[in-house]
Write a protein that binds this DNA or RNA. Structure first.
Lengths: 207, 207
DNA sequence: TGTAAAACCCCTGTTTTCCGGTATTTTTTC
DNA sequence: GAAAAAATACCGGAAAACAGGGGTTTTACA
């Protein structure tokens, strides 16, 4: 029997997953948890083979939770579960130890298939996820620039409407330095004024 | 027996709803549909008492579907079902004939309660929806400013990264005029630089 | 572990934006 | 249909952002 637990904050969804899992003879559903904290607690006592994990939890991001669980219990396999088909989210889940990713519009059978697949050591992505990743390749070209911590900090302050001088004061650096970061941001985003940088950053949900 | 049908494109969710509804003796689940078209077809043959309807369907918006169903079959009561707690969506559902609104993070019991409540002629909102509407009131105050055609035109050009002079050239007006609009935009958005205006406009999806 | 790239920091002159006004035309609204 | 309000248009000086240069410290990786 494959021991499975569910981490998901939507009760209706939990109900649906329970139903799907219970209908399969080889799978045993060992419990469900509505947030990251409670799973981490539960794991201290007993570990399942597989965790079905919603990526959007109320208390902690799925990516972080995934990382933490894999750090402590590397044998547990994790399947990310989400309505989001955004390439960055999918990638960071997989990079942080998830073995599978299934979108919430998937069929119940895909969940079952995913569980068996990752127990066989495979990586499982549902068809819609694969589709999303394929489309994402095109978007990768006009990808989100890689931004440093400092740049992000300054970008956020600019987004708040602060002027270069105010930012300089707040970060205890010269206005020239701030302008330098500003310049680099424009460079990285491939535009020539901060306004457009902020627009793009907003669209990319960096702000 | 209250006849209920479900319109929802997430199979797992459907599974969960089915479970919840079947467990109640007074409710009869008459079927589920994954998109708007198929429900409309099904309704021609037989009408339920209540429709549980996801607001985000693949083929048609929940608001439109709600409106169409109420136009043809005014006795059917509709409960909107969504992950979104955004005030505009909730309001337009209710304005277009929905009798209830339940967020997907609600408990199964809330669904049941909602069905019975609207069958009693009440309007039912789940606790989280009420909360969202309350918070939305505060947001309504800092609502999207009313912008003139000309201002929008200029805002869009600013969003493209053009300078005042380039905009003036393109619209055959003086740079001073452009700056005047720029100033008014800042005024209306309640901020003091164009960058923040563009950020807000982007968030409001005005750009 | 050494070195190249990246991140971070600073400067000067030029361009652009911002802010205080004012004036004319078009919409609302009573 | 007249008054009020809003939209559009314009100015000049002050403030901020931008462009293009250079330097030091971390970080990544071969």
């Amino acid at each position: 029997m494959i021991k499975v637990i569910v981490v998901e904050d939507h009760p209706i969804m939990v109900e649906g997953l329970k139903n799907i899992l219970l209908n399969d003879a080889g799978i045993e559903m060992k419990g469900d948890y509505g947030n990251g904290k409670s799973v981490l607690q539960a794991l201290e006592k007993e570990q399942p083979d597989v965790i079905l994990m919603d990526v959007n939890l109320p208390d902690i991001s799925g990516v972080t939770l995934c990382m933490e669980i894999k750090k402590k219990y590397e044998d547990i396999r994790i399947i990310g579960l989400s309505i989001h088909d955004e390439q960055p989210v999918i990638h960071s889940m997989l990079q942080n130890g998830a073995s599978g990713y299934v979108l919430k519009n998937a069929l119940g059978t895909e969940i079952i298939r995913a569980i068996y697949a990752i127990m066989d050591g495979e990586e499982y992505l549902c068809s819609n996820t694969k589709e999303a990743l394929k489309n994402a390749d095109a978007e990768l070209l006009k990808a989100i620039p890689r931004i440093t911590r400092r740049e992000k900090e300054i970008l956020q302050l600019i987004g708040k409407g602060l002027t270069t001088m105010q930012i300089a004061d707040q970060l205890f650096i010269s206005t020239h330095t701030v302008e330098s970061h500003r310049k680099n941001l424009m460079e990285k985003f491939g535009v020539n004024n901060t306004t457009t940088v902020v627009k793009l950053a907003t669209e990319y949900k960096l702000l």
